[in-house]
């Protein structure tokens, strides 16, 4: 049964995660994601799941590693400095092929930065913030509704491919209250089985979970197999939204909160007769290189807009490969540009 409720993005993601069958959540307080931790404390035990406030983000991600190994849907949430602390654990999750969902309600950085919305964690999320050759599935919601939907999708994709999934949100999305239609709850018992999980070696050979292989050729083989799964994800799981791209002369590319603001830019631009469109990546990894490349053949310019100094911009330029102009507009430090600011920039290329 669909239910429409007024809730913050953080609450929407937390409730959607529980409904997706989450049964183990471990977190540590940090602004602006505390509502996720608090929501889990209040609601996950009622749903039959384990909630624990950990002693640190490092402990929380390693608790997720243990719970994921036990075969349950596991999740942690944090914000930028805390996600940095989780990076070692995320690398181990990736290296052990364990599914897990990590939510980053990103804030201004680097260092302690501030608690305002920012997108400076794109590199960390998509390029491997931890050590070693690995990928995370990275989902970037732009509304409370989409946040709820992607929270469920994150678990499904993470389980299917045994690749950790990171939801890259930000403080604005997390704090904003909107009507959200929630998906119906799912019974974890109906989810696909995990024969690799550590459930006790009863009537079967022991299951072992590790990211350790001292012999180089063995480790190479493990990595090659994992990369085959990454290629499959790249082929099947790229998600993006296009707005008014059919006749666009200037194409905006923006994700998350910035993608939402960019939609307003498109609407206002179109009202003024400016042929501006938007491509909004929903999966940041796998990144929508192909649709951007296609559009690059026919637009005058592709303007990347981010709450950073230009991180996704690098992927956009990799996609475009010089087919058209690729200017950039960004804000730093948690400052969020207005639609008017961006429209001014669009007009320079229209």
């Amino acid at each position: 049964m669909a239910e429409r409720q007024l809730m913050t993005g953080n609450e929407a993601m937390a409730e959607a995660a529980i409904r997706a069958g989450l049964r183990a959540y471990f977190g540590y307080p940090i602004t602006p994601q505390n509502e996720v931790l608090e929501y889990m404390a209040a609601h996950l035990p009622q749903a039959g799941g384990a909630f624990l406030q950990a002693e640190s983000e490092v402990a929380a991600i390693n608790m997720c590693y243990g719970a994921a190994a036990a075969g349950v849907r596991a999740m942690t949430s944090s914000s930028s400095p805390g996600v940095s602390l989780k990076m070692e654990g995320i690398s181990y999750l990736a290296g052990a092929d364990l599914p897990c969902v990590i939510l980053n309600a990103a804030r201004g950085g680097p260092g302690l930065g501030n608690i305002a919305p920012a997108q400076g964690d794109y590199f960390q999320a998509t390029k491997g913030g931890g050590h070693g050759d690995y990928r995370l599935i990275v989902l970037a919601p732009s509304t409370g509704q989409e946040a709820a939907e992607l929270a469920g999708l994150a678990f499904d994709l993470s389980d299917r491919y045994r690749v950790p999934a990171l939801i890259l949100a930000d403080g604005m999305l997390g704090q904003m209250m909107e009507p959200v239609t929630l998906p119906p709850p799912r019974d974890p018992g109906t989810l696909p089985p995990k024969p690799w999980a550590l459930t006790g070696a009863k009537g079967r050979e022991p299951n072992l979970i590790a990211s350790f292989a001292l012999e180089p050729t063995v480790l190479r083989e493990i990595n090659v197999k994992r990369y085959a799964r990454y290629r499959e994800i790249e082929a099947r799981e790229v998600r993006w939204e296009e707005v008014a791209t059919e006749d666009a002369e200037v194409l905006l590319i923006a994700y998350g909160t910035m993608g939402r603001i960019a939609k307003t830019v498109v609407r206002r631009g179109r009202e003024r007769g400016v042929k501006v469109g938007l491509l909004r990546p929903i999966t940041l990894w796998p990144f929508p290189y192909a649709p951007i490349r296609t559009l690059a053949e026919r637009v005058k310019a592709i303007l990347t807009v981010e709450l950073s100094a230009g991180q996704m911009w690098e992927d956009v330029r990799l996609a475009v490969e010089g087919r058209t102009a690729t200017p950039f507009y960004g804000e730093l430090g948690g400052v969020v540009p207005t639609p008017s600011d961006i429209l001014q920039e669009v007009l320079r290329y229209a």
Partner: peptide, 9 residues
């Protein structure tokens, strides 16, 4: 911490 996660799960 890993033990905690396993046991709680």
């Amino acid at each position: 911490a890993v033990a905690t996660g396993l046991k709680r799960a």
